[in-house]
Amino acid sequence: MITFKGVHKWFKSLHVLNDINLHVSPGEVLVVCGPSGSGKSTLIRTINQLEPINQGTLIVDGMDLSDKKTDINKLRAEVGFVFQQFNLYPHLSVIGNITLAPIKIRNIPKKEAEEQAMELLTRVGLAEKRDAYPLQLSGGQQQRVAIARGLAMKPRIMLFDEPTSALDPEMIGEVLEVMKDLARSGMTMVVVTHEMGFAREVAHRVVFMDYGVILEEAPPEDFFLRPQHERAQQFLRQLLTPMQAG
């Protein structure tokens, strides 16, 4: 579904992704973790080419991102992206946020798009908020709407970049529940997160990054109980103390 082969990326002289080799199979849930600045966001953003890669091969859903002929907008329509800061469209209502892309990109009739949106809103537990505006919602609600917005395009892959890091602690659970449901439904997911509960419950694999390098790649139970790399051990120790790693 997603294949990185020898992928490199630089920001000027900063080597943010250093020889990334990674494969995500259909239906797999991959969790990416690592210290702040290690390149997690950059990695996940290359998958829908919010960040272009400089070297190597990256194939997503059969499309080669290093090939100039690849229709990048088509690829992005197949890949949902959920941001740390939600990034809902503030000028549109909840239902407007969810139906905009299906109506304008997929040319689905408005009525049909709204019916589908209501199904998604019910799934994330926000049916009664259909006409609210994003800024009237709590952070947790906004993020659930953002997930519904991503799902409305019927994506083959969903990407999450620290979806709960900007939330008040009491709202993290409601968002993780929605994501766990999605994982159990068989969606292919790449999730940058430090929520170890989520990783333990639904992740098939955990990847640990530092300085742009994948240092460790293991099933969650192995990663959490027997981290091999010294940096990973240190990172996990920090996660368990109140001083959270970025």
């Binding site: 829908n48 992005r76 992206f81 990034n87 809902l88 469209y89």
Partner: peptide
């Protein structure tokens, strides 16, 4: 906002 729009496929 531009990123959100572009990542939706616009």
């Amino acid at each position: 906002q531009m990123e959100a729009a572009r990542s939706a496929g616009f």
